[in-house]
Amino acid sequence: MSGEAVLKCPYCGSEFRVPHTVSVATCPYCGYTFKISTGEAITEHYYFKVVFSSSSAFDRLLRFILRNYGAPSDFHTATELRKASLHYVPIHAVHAEATGECIYTEGMWFWSKSYEGDFYEVGDYFILANREPWFSHIVENYRFSLRGREYFKPKMLRMGRYYNITVSKEDAIKVASDAVVRDLMKDLNTGCRGNKIVKDVKTEYLGVTHYPIWEFTYRYGNVEMKALVDASSGRVIYAEYPQTLKAREEAGLIAGTLIGIGAAGGGIGGLVAVGGLMAAVMAGVGAVVGLIAALPAIKRAFEKVVKTSERVEDWNLLLKAGKLLEEESIFGITLG
C-alpha cells in the first residue's frame, strides 16, 4: 500500500504496516511501543480504561442533551444510534519549568536604582500526538478524568480505533518548551517593565497516554448528528442536538421583547435628557442596546442544531468575583 511502511516489531518480530507519518509505532500483536528510527522502547506509555460502555455512554449523552434548552422532550426515546466508535487518542505529557529575570532601573545616572528578581513558571503541557481525528481541535485542551491511568496493554489495540503517534516526543518537548517560555513572558509582562531575560528552560518528558473517547453518530427525525463522550468519566465532550421550533420561537420572542424594551428605555431617556428629534435617535440606540443584550437569544432563534458540551465549571461572572474575594482571604492572613 502506498504511503505505508512495513515494520518488524523489535520485541516479538511480527510484521505490520504503519503510515509513513508515524514516528512511534505500537505493535498490534504484542503492544510493544517503540521509536521507528531507533527501535527504542517508549516505556512511559499509559492508557485510560473504558469505564463507560458504548450503551451507558450513549444513554448518558441522551440524558445530558435532555437538560439543554430547546431539546425535544422525547429525545432519549426517539433518537436512533447509527454508529458508535471508540477512539484511543494519544496525548504527550511534558513537564516544563522556566526561570526568567527582571531588571528594572529607576532614575538616571547617580540617582538610579536597580531592582533584580527572578520569575518562575512551572507547567505541565499535554500535546495531541496525532492530529488526524476530525475532532482534534475539540479534544485539544480537554482535561482527563479523575480515574487512574493504567500501563499500556496490547489488548487495547483491539478495543477501538488506535491512533499511532505522529507528533514525535522531541516535537512535543519543543512545543512544551515554547509554551512555558510564553507563559513565563506573560508573567514577566504583567510584573516587570524593565529588562526581561529568560535564563533557563528545563523539560521532562512524562510519557504518552492513550485516552478513550466515544464517537456517536445518531439520528433524530431527519437530522444526523455527532457527539463525543469521555469513555473514562462519561462526560460529554461535544454534542449536537436539534432545537425544537417552539424553543426557537421563544428565543425569537425573548430577543424581540428585549429590543423593544431597549427602544422604549432609549426613547424615554432621550425625551427627558435631550428631547426633540434626538429622542427618536436615542430610541434607535436603545434598540441596539436591546439587540446586543439579546444576542444569545438571537443566536438560539436561528440555530436548528445546537452544539454543546458538558461543563464541570461555571463561567459565572459572580463566581469570578467570588474567586477574587477568595484570593483576598488567602493572603489576608498575616501581613507584616
Binding site: S14, R17, E132
Partner: peptide, 20 residues
C-alpha cells in the same frame, strides 16, 4: 482514512509473547 484502520486487526495474530 483513520490510522487505526490501517493496522490489520482482522488477520490471525501470532501467539502472544510474554508481555514486555
Amino acid at each position: 482514512m483513520p490510522q487505526g484502520a490501517e493496522i490489520p486487526y482482522s488477520t490471525e495474530p501470532p501467539p502472544l509473547p510474554p508481555p514486555p
